[in-house]
Design a protein around this nucleic acid. Structure first.
Lengths: 136, 136
DNA sequence: TTTCCAATAAGAATGATTACGATTTACTAT
DNA sequence: ATAGTAAATCGTAATCATTCTTATTGGAAA
């Protein structure tokens, strides 16, 4: 997703255009890796030494709730990246060295079919972890 | 897995038989749900008011490293349960209400085949979240 | 029984995340 | 433009899970 589309979604939902918000989005636009809240804060504090954790976490939560960012938990820490452009459901290979991802078009839920008839299925997680060709 | 088998593994690896360790294992033997370190501590402190977090965490880590327990991260917290008896690789449906699981015999990695030739695959996670028939 | 080392207790430290009152900023209507 | 208003941010403290440290205890072998 790009900045323009992200701001479109934010405006539609009544969020104000602030410089901090914009810079957070710019960081994600220019980085395809999964980043932590701390990663964001570190970059932001170069320009805004008074930048607060609260602002980072609050905006990350906002962006995730609007599907501008996607989040996953890697080794106990929340990580974020710009939501994929592709509109079809998919999963990710995640490089544990550099944080870059590769889309996996397959979804195991398609194969399960009606294997759990009496169950209410709310969510699922399928991720592959390892090293990408560059990091191997 | 049962207590006898767990203690066999522990003894093989030179771990001493302590009352605390045994009670932790008994809790897991009698509970098929995913439990947190705090869950264990709460139960243990009824019998041992001085029970320390450190003891819980240290033993949980030991048990996981010996494949006596299996661990997963649910909403930011590490959860543990007795390792499944079944020797073939599988995944889990996890009830987010009661913590009970259901085994899913299918593994999506089987279907990926050689779809990621240049990648080093170290690990993967496939879990389905929702409500079990009892909790629905 | 004594000795040794693993195991534990107690509590402090850490690291990520959330909460809160005070202040500032972006948008809106004048 | 300007003021009013609610949203956004700051600064900092609190919380929560987890790990670390040091002193002490307990299990098992000699």
């Amino acid at each position: 997703m790009n900045l323009t589309k992200a701001w479109g979604i934010l405006k539609e939902n009544g969020f104000k255009e602030t410089t901090k918000r914009n810079q957070i989005l710019e960081i994600f636009e220019g980085d395809e890796r999964y980043l932590t809240a701390r990663d964001i804060l570190d970059v932001m504090q170069k320009d805004y030494p008074s930048m607060s954790y609260d602002t980072v976490y609050r905006n990350l939560a906002t962006f995730v709730s609007l599907d501008i960012l996607e989040a996953t938990e890697l080794s106990g820490e929340k990580h974020f990246r710009m939501h994929c452009e592709s509109d079809h459901h998919h999963h990710h290979f995640i490089c544990m060295d550099c944080g870059k991802i590769k889309e996996i078009p397959l979804c195991p839920m398609d194969l399960l079919g009606a294997a759990l008839p009496a169950y209410e299925i709310d969510n699922h997680k399928f991720e592959i972890y390892g090293k990408c060709p560059e990091c191997k």
